[in-house]
């Protein structure tokens, strides 16, 4: 991927750094968040995107963070993970990098806005008490609640406001219903889109599917 071309094509304030877990359990939430971002006129930047770069993973992340005016950080995965029985610190770490850019960066970087997400109310008070006052939104592992959280966050500075969360959820369901027919036409099955390695293809497909919805009828 040519990062430079993305930067030119998509405004800084329309790029959203999506900092969330990448596991099978989180996949429906990840897809809901990406779908919502695009349905609201933004674009999602995630660590999974294939940058084609040989640089270190952290450098790529820092570059993505620098190119994004907004950030959504899901800090809900604070539990121990098998098989190591250790927690993963990627999300809080990347959240800290984002906050640091906002705090100490250039004028454009200081315009950054971000949203913290949690699974349960008051969870962050126990796991990351330094973030007190940042008021994380709670999604309860429900994609529709996540859609509402993300949409409301994006709508804050928009005029007109994007379509409502129920409309986005309905669009998302329409897309999921259309998927079997599309995969069948491609001689594939839905299971082929399940693995995390196929996420980018799902992502491209979802945004391409949304495109005609925004085209005025001839």
């Amino acid at each position: 991927m040519a990062v430079g071309s993305r930067k030119r094509a998509i405004p800084y304030d329309r790029q959203v750094f999506l900092n969330c877990p990448f596991d099978d359990a989180y996949s429906p939430l990840l897809r809901a968040a990406v779908f919502t971002l695009h349905a609201c006129g933004f674009t999602a930047r995630i660590a999974l995107e294939n940058t084609g770069s040989e640089s270190a993973r952290l450098d790529r992340l820092v570059q993505i963070i620098g190119e994004c005016g907004l950030g959504i950080h899901d800090l809900s995965r604070a539990h121990l993970t098998s098989p190591t029985d250790l927690p993963r610190f990627n999300m809080p770490f990347e959240c800290g990098v984002f906050y640091g850019a906002r705090r100490f960066g250039t004028t454009a970087q200081r315009r950054k806005r971000f949203l913290l997400l949690d699974k349960d109310p008051y969870q962050s008070q126990k796991t990351i008490s330094d973030a007190a006052g940042l008021d994380p939104r709670v999604h309860g592992n429900d994609p529709e609640k996540l859609i509402a959280c993300v949409r409301d966050f994006l709508a804050q500075k928009l005029d007109p406001k994007p379509i409502g969360p129920s409309r986005i959820a309905a669009l998302s369901r329409d897309f999921e219903r259309a998927l079997p027919a599309i995969t069948a036409r491609a001689d594939l099955t839905l299971a082929d889109l399940e693995p995390l390695t196929a996420f980018n293809d799902w992502y491209l497909l979802a945004t391409r599917w949304l495109q005609p919805q925004a085209t005025p009828p001839a």
Partner: peptide
């Protein structure tokens, strides 16, 4: 005001290279 549909909105396409499956 709030939009009632996506018509007229800019839907940004991710700058990703699709795999063969994609």
């Amino acid at each position: 005001r709030t939009r009632t549909s996506l018509v007229g909105m800019t839907i940004y396409q991710p700058d990703l290279q699709p795999s063969a499956l994609g």
